[in-house]
Amino acid sequence: MSFQPIKFYQTGTFTVGNRLLPPEQRSVQASAKRFNSINSGHRACQGCGEALGARYAIDAAMEATDGQLVCANATGCLEVFSTPYPETSWQVPWIHSLFGNTAAVATGIAAALKVKDQGGTRVVAQGGDGGTTDIGFGCLSGMFERNDDVLYICYDNQGYMNTGVQRSSATPPAARTATTMAVGPEPGNVFGQGKFVPAIALAHDIPYVATATVADLRDLEAKVRRAMEIRGARYLHILVPCPLGWGTAAHDTIRMARLAKETGIFPVFEAEHGEIRAVLPIRRQLPVEEYLKPQKRYAHLFGKQPHVEVIARLQALADRNIRRYGLLEQA
């Protein structure tokens, strides 16, 4: 595991904090003095996983760098809901340039800071899955291979939610989006497409690659902290459920992320220099239906005649993740 398990304090490391923990064992988010890098008043939907993930990650990076941080942001939900003129929610130095160039903008910032500030100030680039796995992928790969001193964070909500829920290369099979409609003989997104960018990041042999979800705050914070200890290109891929795009209740955002991890749908792991070092094991394994059923984007799989064969294929994908990453082994 990425973080040191702590002694039994009712809730271990599962809750955000706990009054019983010594302060050094509490999460950044538990602190009354946390930075709130992205402040109240932003226009994210109710229960937005991305707003949450962004605050978790950037606050952790702020803590790790003692506030010496600059952020670059891709076009997308996060950008739109956080900085509509005349208000911004960001309390960190922040720039939005374009949809597909965020990794490169961050490279430029890092280069400038290396010259101007001897690298004392660090850079985080952030974008959604569209801005990362699709349109921004060239710049991302370039930043990786040059090993630029940038932590790139992808907030993966598995589609183009800002433009009205269209398919991205991170949209999972069978999911309904506005461009993978739930009609025809094979409703929803097709099988056999899409890409898992963390694995591609690994193939660049960059110093640090990790995945996380908004359901495991401690793990997420530990990964940001670890990432900021390392120089060079780093990639953190955070699953951030989207109530709008997934068709889930606003209050279920964290639960959905938890279910994605506990079913094996989304593997949570950590790798350094191209080698996987640790996984966050499944704690209470569940069948994929538990994850799929609450989501309207999979509603066509259920109903009167459930598509059992499609569900079985999704289960097989989860099982493959479990095998591939050893998600059931003890930490």
């Binding site: 160039n101 490169a104 430029g108 400038a112």
Partner: peptide, 14 residues
């Protein structure tokens, strides 16, 4: 595209 984007980031960072 990256060249100009890197320049954007660098310039914005001073």
């Amino acid at each position: 595209f990256a060249a100009m984007s890197v320049a954007i980031g660098a310039s914005a960072a001073g």
